[in-house]
C-alpha cells in the first residue's frame, strides 16, 4: 500500500467513525461524504480511475445530495435526548467485533501468501481501463447491465409513487406515536 493509500485509509476510517458517532445527522452526512471521497481516492490508488470518478459522480454527486436534501427538508435536530442505555452499544460492538473476528481470519488464511503490489501493476494505463470496463459491461454483462437499468427505472417510479401525496392518508394506529398530521 502506498503512502496515498494510507492517507486515504486513515481519512476513510476517521470519517466512518464520524458517521456513526456524530449526534447530528447532518454532520454524519458530511462525514459520509468525506468517507466516500476517500474511498474514491482508494479506488484511484488501486488503479480503478473510472470507478473513482463514478464513485464521486454517483455517491457524492447524486446520492448524498439527495440525503442532504432530505435532511435539510426535514430539518431534523440531533437525535432526541433518550439515552442509548448500556446494553445496546455493547451488543453493537459485539456485532462489529464478531463480523471482523469471523471474516478476517478466514480471509487472511486465504490470501496471506499473495502480495498485492506484485501483481499486474500497469494493467489499466491511460484510458484502457475505461475501454476495458466498457467492453466488459456491454459484452459479458450486457444482460445484467440492462437489468440494472430496469432496476433504476423501477426505483424512480417507486420513489415517485411513494413520495406522492395520496388522497387517503392511512394515519398512525390508534394509540400509536405521532398522532398529529
Amino acid at each position: 500500500m502506498t503512502f496515498m493509500g494510507f492517507v486515504f485509509s486513515a481519512i476513510a476510517l476517521a470519517a466512518a467513525l464520524g458517521v456513526v458517532f456524530n449526534r447530528n445527522p447532518l454532520y454524519s452526512a458530511f462525514s459520509l461524504i468525506v468517507q466516500l471521497l476517500a474511498m474514491a481516492g482508494l479506488y484511484s490508488v488501486l488503479g480503478a480511475h473510472f470507478l473513482a470518478v463514478t464513485q464521486v459522480v454517483v455517491y457524492a454527486g447524486a446520492i448524498m445530495v439527495l440525503v442532504l436534501f432530505v435532511l435539510m427538508l426535514l430539518n431534523l435536530k440531533s437525535e432526541s435526548g433518550r439515552k442509548l442505555g448500556i446494553v445496546k452499544p455493547l451488543v453493537a460492538l459485539g456485532v462489529g467485533f464478531s463480523v471482523v473476528a469471523t471474516v478476517f481470519p478466514a480471509v487472511v488464511a486465504q490470501f496471506k501468501d499473495i502480495s498485492l503490489m506484485t501483481l499486474q501493476e500497469n494493467l489499466w494505463k491511460s484510458e484502457g481501463g475505461v475501454k476495458a470496463i466498457g467492453q466488459e459491461i456491454y459484452g459479458r454483462y450486457i444482460v445484467q447491465f440492462e437489468l440494472s437499468s430496469l432496476v433504476l427505472l423501477i426505483g424512480i417510479v417507486g420513489a415517485i409513487m411513494l413520495s406522492k401525496r395520496k388522497r387517503i392518508v392511512i394515519g398512525p394506529r390508534e394509540g400509536g406515536l405521532g398522532g398529529k398530521q
Binding site: 473513482a52 470518478v53 459522480v57 494505463k125 491511460s126 484510458e127
Partner: peptide, 12 residues
C-alpha cells in the same frame, strides 16, 4: 483515463 468525466465529478 476518466478524462472528461472528472470535470463532471468535480461539478457535482
Amino acid at each position: 483515463d476518466a478524462g472528461i468525466l472528472f470535470v463532471l465529478a468535480m461539478g457535482s
